[in-house]
Design a protein around this nucleic acid. Structure first.
Lengths: 210, 210
DNA sequence: CTGATTTTTAACCATTTGGTTAAATTTTTG
DNA sequence: CAAAAATTTAACCAAATGGTTAAAAATCAG
């Protein structure tokens, strides 16, 4: 058994991710996964007992990078705006490398929301930091650092502007009259654009911000 | 044949929409559609020749309301901000009534983007009004009515904030720590919230706006 | 009432698909 | 080299599924 280079197991997992993303969980064919991995169906079942189990692994993998980073950002220090900026930057970077992920994840999450619980989320140490973050937003509003609004709307807007461009790409390309290359460029400049937009929308001019 | 009350054909189409949305195009079962419509599989194939054809009809139906309204809004008169407001209001109203639609549509659109062309979009009279709208945005920026930014980013942000909450509901509910009822309430107040956010972000204070 | 239309029943078919199996072959490892 | 592990081959199976068919039954329209 090799240890350093890529194993067949990994080749299968990578192929499975691509095929699941392309075709959805029902649409994915085990034969297609085997072909894409460059191995045969027998070996596929030699390593993974069935489609459902394979899907579970791929699905949880999709969060393995995302969730811990999110937890760190919102548990850590920093002002609301600093956390938002760190979130937008981090998530965008992740999505630019794996643009198909959100469609896949949100799609399956809508079909079986519970899976999110039993997966990576439940394995995280400590409570989710969202309650603290929502409170922090409210405090900064009270202190007059940011404009008063429903903290959940703010958070919804931030996440929408970050994630949606990767889900609505086919439709947005039509509406914005750009081709794939131009769209890709739009996405690389997205972080700045989002942050300017958000800051204009919520930042109040006070003596004590940078 | 009855004409006024709901026909079996319509019952089937309604059922098909629900099942396709729930399970995706590959995951949907003809038997399940028949059951949900309260008829049998034979009748289903008596009216619709096959699954693909049925799906096509449902898919195009999903746009039949949306696209013409969009065309009207952006072809019509009014300032950029007025058009944005009319868009947000219209689309939100549509989505609150059919919250599962965007996931369904965007999902299948990512799988087969061409279908969008051959469907309702190609049947619309006249050219899409998006080019005009993008130009209008640029003009108002030049005139100092709204803040300077990439018009496409602005349009992306507007659409993201409007549509994403319906796609990311399961995830947002976890992050925002709200239950389904609270989430529903958030959505009903969404139009105001979005518009305030956008106006703060892009509107410049000039003597000649309302 | 009567013919036409709609709907059901129920059996059936061909194909796809997830999954299995066992033996042969290749590769790895000690 | 020899045992162990990884991989292929190829045939096979059972279940699910899209779709068909023909005749009976129910409903509707003139």
């Amino acid at each position: 058994m090799k240890e350093l280079d890529i194993t067949s197991k990994e080749k299968i997992l990578n192929a499975a991710r691509r095929v699941f993303i392309r075709n959805g969980s029902s649409g994915a064919r085990m034969q297609e996964i085997a072909d894409e991995a460059g191995i045969n169906k027998a070996l596929l079942h030699y390593y993974f007992k069935n489609k459902e189990g394979l899907f579970e692994l791929v699905f949880n993998d999709a969060f393995s990078e995302f969730i811990p980073k999110i937890y760190n950002i919102f548990s850590g220090d920093g002002s609301v705006m600093e956390k938002i900026e760190r979130y937008v930057e981090t998530h965008l970077q992740l999505l630019i490398n794996k643009p198909d992920l959100p469609m896949f994840v949100l799609n399956e999450m809508q079909r079986e929301p519970e899976r999110f619980f039993s997966g990576i989320l439940s394995k995280m140490p400590g409570a989710p930091p969202f309650e603290l973050f929502l409170k922090q937003i409210e405090e900064e509003m009270k202190d007059g650092k940011i404009r008063t609004m429903n903290p959940r709307d703010l958070w919804m807007n931030v996440m929408s502007m970050t994630v949606f461009p990767f889900i609505g790409e086919p439709m947005l390309k039509k509406f914005l009259l750009v081709n794939s290359e131009e769209y890709r460029i739009l996405l690389t400049k997205r972080k700045e654009s989002i942050m300017i937009f958000i800051k204009q929308a919520v930042l109040l001019p006070t003596p004590n911000n940078a």
